[in-house]
Every structure is written in C-alpha cells, then in structure tokens.
C-alpha cells in the first residue's frame, strides 16, 4: 500500500506554507518528519486529516488500484493527549469497540488490550480526567492502534512521556509498522534517527527525502545542512 500526495498547496494569506508537495509514502516504514518551527508540519498533517482544506492537491491510496484517501484511512495522535474526560478507561474502550463492531481485526477482550498497553488494573475503572499525562497518551495510542488505520500521523507523541513509557511506545510503533504507513513528526533528531526508517524534511514548502545510505554523523550533518541552509 502506498499513500500518494500530489500537488499539495496551501497558503495562509501571502505565505505559501506548502508550495507543491509531491511525495509517495510506503507501508512498512516509519517516516520521520523533520522541519524547523513554522515549517508547516502541523499544516501538512491537518491537510491529510481534513482539518483544513488544502488550496490544491489530491491524496490517493494506491494498492493494486488507486482510490482517494478517506477519513477512515487516517489516525492522528496528538502530542497533548485527548480523551473524553467523563468516561473511565474501560468505558471508553467498550464504546470504541461497540461502534466499530465487525471492523476490528482479531478483536481481543478489553483487559487484554489494557495488558497490551501496560495499563494497571487499578487504573482501568478510573475516570480519564484523573489519568496522568502518560496514561492518557497510552489510551489515545491504544484507540488508534485498535482502529488500525492505514495511515497513522503522530505529532510529537513521545516527548512528554517518561523514558520507560516512551520505550514501550516505540516498541509498539515498530510492531505495527508492517501493515501501516507511520508519519512521525518531531523536533528531536536522535529520536527520529533511532525510530524511523526514512527521514523526510519539510523546508520552504517542499518535502525532501534524506539519502538513507548515509550513516551516523554524516547523516546528522546532512540533515543539519538541509535544515539550516538558506533559500
């Protein structure tokens, strides 16, 4: 499966944030999306997620044939976790499983999912508003993993987690990548390098793929060079 982004353009006022993006993402890979502040990473995600309308451009899912991207294809994990505060963890999961009945592959029991996410038993029946930041994040990730959308957009999802949870999450992301396209936006280069299979850079409204034959310091230097060069 591939995700084709064709002629994506987006302007805010005079400012062309996304100039003309043409890029093909492939499943089985985690893409690390790097870019300086204000480069347009969030705008790019918002366009894919239909939160804002692009000025121009099409998104296609290509398997044997090609079809337009729909909202079902996308999961979006935000850096500030968002969960319905008035439900308990268990209720949220129950609700989610019920309305997606029949659509979930290898459905497990609620507690199995909690075990998988390493959410403690005593926390499962607490209101989500009383969950810690990390636990809310786990719930959000869990829902997105169960929904198993073709494309998972991740906006700095690990930065505010403690090291243990962050490692757990990385493991989980690696374990689901085979059947999905994961696009992971971050400011932390080391995180991108350790987790991602490809590094893409958003700069001056264009996406560039960084040559992955480079290794170690050379790769870092190349990324720095691309990020910091002037137009």
């Amino acid at each position: 499966m591939k995700l084709e982004v064709l002629n994506l353009k987006k302007k805010f006022g005079e400012k062309e944030v996304l100039k003309n993006i043409n890029f093909t993402f492939e499943s089985g890979k985690i893409y690390g999306l790097l870019g300086r502040n204000g480069a347009g990473k969030t705008t790019f995600f918002n366009c894919l997620n239909e939160d804002i309308l692009p000025d121009e451009g099409t998104f296609n899912i290509v398997t044997e044939s090609s079809r337009p991207l729909t909202i079902d294809d996308i999961g979006y994990v935000l850096s500030t976790p968002v969960v319905p505060e008035f439900l308990t963890g268990r209720e949220f999961l129950k609700f989610f499983l019920e309305i997606n009945e029949g659509k979930i592959k290898n459905e497990k029991t609620i507690d199995e999912y909690f075990d998988f996410m390493k959410i403690e038993e005593e926390d499962r029946d607490k209101l989500l508003k009383d969950y810690s930041h990390g636990m809310k994040n786990k719930m959000q990730m869990l829902i997105n993993i169960i929904a198993s959308p073709n494309i998972l957009l991740l906006d700095e999802p690990l930065t505010s987690l403690d090291v243990v949870v962050a490692e757990e999450m990385k493991e989980i992301l690696r374990s689901i990548k085979t059947e999905h396209i994961l696009i992971f936006s971050t400011h932390i280069m080391d995180l991108a390098l350790s987790l991602c299979d490809e590094i893409i850079i958003l700069k001056d409204g264009n996406l560039t793929l960084v040559d992955k034959n480079l290794k170690g310091e050379k790769l870092k230097n190349k990324i720095m060079e691309i990020l910091s060069e002037d137009k």
């Binding site: 909202i71 968002v82 829902i143 997105n144």
Partner: peptide, 15 residues
C-alpha cells in the same frame, strides 16, 4: 469541553 474537544480528533468519531 468534556467530550467533543477530544473525541473530534478521532476519525471514527467524525464520520
């Protein structure tokens, strides 16, 4: 504030 603000970020909720 207590529900849609978070739920609307999930695509299954926005269908």
């Amino acid at each position: 504030m207590n529900s849609d603000h978070s739920m609307l970020t999930y695509s299954f909720f926005r269908k």
